[in-house]
Design a binder for these strands. Structure first.
Length: 822
DNA sequence: CTCTCCCT
């Protein structure tokens, strides 16, 4: 029986002969992983060099290598080899090496030219794993700079019409091989529990359909709930998820030994990684749970969301592997159209500290320089750099340090690599690093103390009593053994010093060393402040609650306060030895006073305080300036004279340009230290602030050569015909107001001006009692017309004041008629 | 009741 891929093999060969980068799209069952690579081994352009094929999972890498070797009638390790973590099966004869993605990254670090390799195949590229994206970026850089003969074949199981164009690569398409699957939509209440809906659909399928049933749920909790509800049905109900011991996984994958129908309740592990025999019905609950990195806390957390279209297609396809099948989707056809097409690439969601360190080791200080398909977000890179600097792995320019280069020798997260490379007790470091990487071997509710886990591991390894889950302990021990080999140290089964555990954790999580908050009566102890500034609490009644200081390994930030799941006590003296005395000068907004002391600080933690005898002036000025910026300019009092000065200068800035300083609220706030600095040195309280005389400080902002121009162009007062000097009211952006009794202006034709004659004032003409009767900028037309109406209204009310028939010739006066006659 | 999946 020929495989669909075989019809396009000549096309793939021709494309690779001419292009360094080729995209192959082929659905599941085409044979692209298990047949095609063997056909490429003897191509002329390969020049006798070997092929590396990447797989995202270890199980898949081993299985694919086995199928390929079988195709040649050989065993793995001859022409076809495989290499995954903990297991290498290659020989001198190996020409095709199936490896997991991280292996290639390591190999590129050691040998950037990838000597002896002519072709790299990236399988399952549609998954867009972080390591696949990194591998592609590095390989394209190698092609451009070092190896123009190196070829890359990108293989994808789903159709992405943009991919070839975005890579500038030709596309080869192949058909797949699958039986038809009848997709039926069964909308359910989206506010209900997903396990209830799945259980109902499974019961229905047991009645109406034939064959085994595979149901998708978001996680272990929902799987357990559904399994409990299905306990009575006439079928074998089997859970399937990644953390399940291997024997139980096998029970879900194999036909039921008793010949009963199977109902497999699975997480997304059954989408691609594992194939279940005999499935004819898929029930898709429509949810999936994924990890998301939160740069604000440096933590990854689990997020449950809607399934994506490409994942739903994969899930449905599981019903058609061996015969025609049915897929029940527990949502509506309308919802289906609204689902996102695919998950974002892992690179955009993940913790980028490992990637950033790899790239620094590669010599790339700015990851943006690589030819990415989707570039890693710069803010995430910044977060990663901050962490890596705190681990002494990068310098301020983003270059890798000698200590950082040592971290790359440990194939694990840089945090754990730092723990391993800097620890005094290497045997303990190996155990702790392994425990931190694996799932908790102890059951839920076992408390947060790391030493309980170390005891469990060491007790089990010494052959004493066993606490915890053996399958997990075995995985932990396998990791620990790898670290012991690298560190050249023998295992140690003695009980460790608890403080030594805390110090190890502090190497990996420096921002999570924590100090107990002062306990408030009635509230439970065990609340801590982390050096990173976040608050976190131990579970109620935890044995660690009495500790003064902790090093926290695992926590979850749900609300304002995090929950601590794994930690070790820390000697407060150890913290103090790493802290530094710092002058702390702060404005206390509550009391409105300046607080000045010295604090023994480590990040957000203050371990001790002592009085500060002499307060450095610059710190004081900055603290008060920050307080004014936080609370607002109203903390200061602008006297009428100071306000008038600001208004005059601001008016001139509007009229004459930016040679006049900016005295707006925003500008004054931004430059507080400059113009008010020396004044702030004497301030201790909010009242001191309010009493500051701002006028001299504001005047200092005006260049000396403009002080005379200020008085000429924007005088404070104008003289009027009566002889009075009348105050002007300046309003930036508008004409200044001259408010004056109209009798004082008799005979004046032209409206007075400021700004060197360019800006007429706005006259507020007042009654003898000082009430405005007319607002005008045209005095001449006032005397000629409206004056007479005003006169008619007011003559009777103010008979002692002059109201002449001819305002042009009457003597201007500020007095009544009798006083004027005297 | 933190915990989908995976990797050096």
């Amino acid at each position: 029986m020929t495989l669909p891929i075989q019809t396009v093999v000549p096309e793939v060969k021709a494309a690779l002969a001419q292009h360094p980068l080729v995209v192959l799209q082929a659905p599941p069952g085409a044979g692209k992983s298990t047949a095609l690579p063997l056909d490429l081994l003897h191509e002329e352009w390969l020049a006798g060099q070997s092929i590396i094929m990447l797989q995202p999972r270890r199980v898949a890498a081993r299985a694919v290598a086995a199928r390929l070797a079988e195709g040649l009638g050989e065993a793995v390790g001859e022409t076809v080899g495989s290499r995954v973590r903990f297991e290498s099966r290659v020989s001198d004869r190996t020409r095709l090496e199936v490896v997991t993605e991280g292996i290639l990254t390591r190999r590129l670090q050691r040998d950037p030219e990838l000597s002896g390799v002519g072709l790299v195949i990236l399988d399952e590229f549609h998954e867009r794993s972080l390591n696949a994206d990194l591998a592609l970026a590095l390989l394209r850089e190698v092609q451009g700079a070092l190896r123009d003969d190196l070829r890359v074949l990108v293989m994808s199981a789903t159709l992405d019409p943009d991919l070839p164009a975005r890579l500038g690569a030709p596309l080869v398409e192949s058909a797949g091989r699958a039986y038809p699957v009848d997709v039926r939509y069964l909308p359910t209440d989206p506010t209900g529990r997903v396990e209830d809906a799945v259980v109902a659909a499974v019961r229905r399928a047991l009645d109406t359909d034939e064959g085994d049933i595979l149901a998708f749920l978001p996680g272990v909790r929902e799987i357990r709930g559904a399994a409990a509800q299905l306990a009575g049905v006439d079928a074998a109900v089997l859970p399937l998820y990644g953390d399940l011991p291997l024997a139980e996984q096998r029970r879900a994958l194999m036909p039921d030994p008793g010949g009963r129908r199977k109902v497999v309740l699975a997480t997304s592990i059954a989408e691609t990684s594992l194939t279940i025999q005999g499935v004819r019905v898929v029930v898709d609950g429509g949810q999936s749970r994924r990890q998301q990195f939160d740069p604000a806390t440096g933590l990854t957390r689990m997020v449950t969301g809607r399934v994506t279209q490409d994942a739903a297609t994969q899930r449905a396809g599981r019903a058609g592997r061996t015969a025609p099948g049915v897929c029940y989707r527990l949502w509506s056809e309308r919802t289906q159209a609204l689902l996102p097409a695919a998950q974002p690439p892992e690179l955009l969601m993940a913790d980028l500290a490992p990637l950033t360190l790899e790239l620094a080791g590669w010599g790339t200080t700015d990851p943006a320089d690589l030819p990415w398909l989707d570039a890693p977000p710069p803010t995430r890179i910044d977060t990663a750099r901050t962490l890596l600097r705190s681990l002494d792995a990068l310098d301020d320019a983003g270059r890798i340090t000698p200590a950082g280069t040592r971290l790359l020798d440990f194939p694990t997260h840089p945090r754990l690599a730092h723990l391993l490379s800097e620890a005094d007790d290497a045997a303990l470091a190996a155990d702790v690093a392994a425990l931190l990487e694996e799932r908790d071997p102890l059951p839920p509710g076992s408390g947060a103390d790391l030493s309980e886990r170390v005891d469990a591991l060491r007790g089990w390894r010494a052959g004493g009593r066993t606490r915890g889950e053996v399958a997990v302990l075995e995985r932990v021990e396998r990791l620990s053994k790898q670290w012991r080999r690298l560190l050249k140290v023998q295992p140690d089964n003695a009980p460790p010093d608890p403080y030594a555990l805390g110090e190890l954790l502090a190497l990996a999580y420096p921002e999570r060393v924590a100090l107990a908050r002062e306990s408030v009566a009635g509230l439970h102890k065990g609340r801590f402040l982390l050096a990173g500034g976040q608050g976190a609490a131990l579970p109620e009644g935890d044995a660690l609650a009495g500790a003064r200081a902790l090093a926290v390994a695992h926590l979850n930030m749900t609300g304002a306060e995090g929950r601590i799941f794994l930690a070790a006590p820390l000697n407060p003296a150890w913290l103090a030895a790493r802290a530094t005395w710092q002058d702390a000068v702060r404005w206390d907004a509550r009391t409105g006073t300046l607080l000045a002391q010295q604090e023994l600080r480590l990040g957000a933690l203050a371990l001790d305080t002592r009085p500060l005898r002499e307060v450095p002036a610059d710190l004081k000025v900055k603290a008060i300036a920050d307080a004014v910026r936080a609370e607002g300019l109203h903390l200061l009092t602008f006297s009428p004279a100071a306000s008038a000065f600001r208004a005059r200068v601001q008016s001139l800035r509007e009229w004459r340009g930016e040679e006049w300083p900016d005295l707006s609220d925003a500008a004054l706030l931004a430059t507080l230290e400059d113009w008010l600095g020396s004044g702030l040195e004497r301030v201790r309280t909010r009242d001191d602030l309010a009493r500051l005389d701002l006028l001299p400080a504001l005047q200092s902002l005006l260049p000396w050569n403009l002080t005379r121009e200020l008085d000429e162009l924007a005088p404070t007062h104008l003289s009027v015909p009566s002889g009075s000097r009348v105050r002007l009211e300046y309003r930036p952006g508008e004409a200044p107001i001259l408010a004056v009794k109209l009798q004082e202006l008799f005979g004046l034709a032209d409206t007075p001006t400021v700004n060197g004659g360019r800006t007429p004032v706005l006259l507020h003409l007042l009654s003898p009692a000082g009430r405005p009767v007319q607002v005008t900028q045209d005095l001449r037309s006032f005397w000629n017309s409206s004056y007479f109406e005003v006169r008619k209204d007011l003559r009777g009310r103010y008979p002692k004041h002059p109201w002449p028939d001819d305002p042009w010739t009457h003597e201007p006066t500020r007095w009544t008629k009798r006083r004027a006659e005297k």
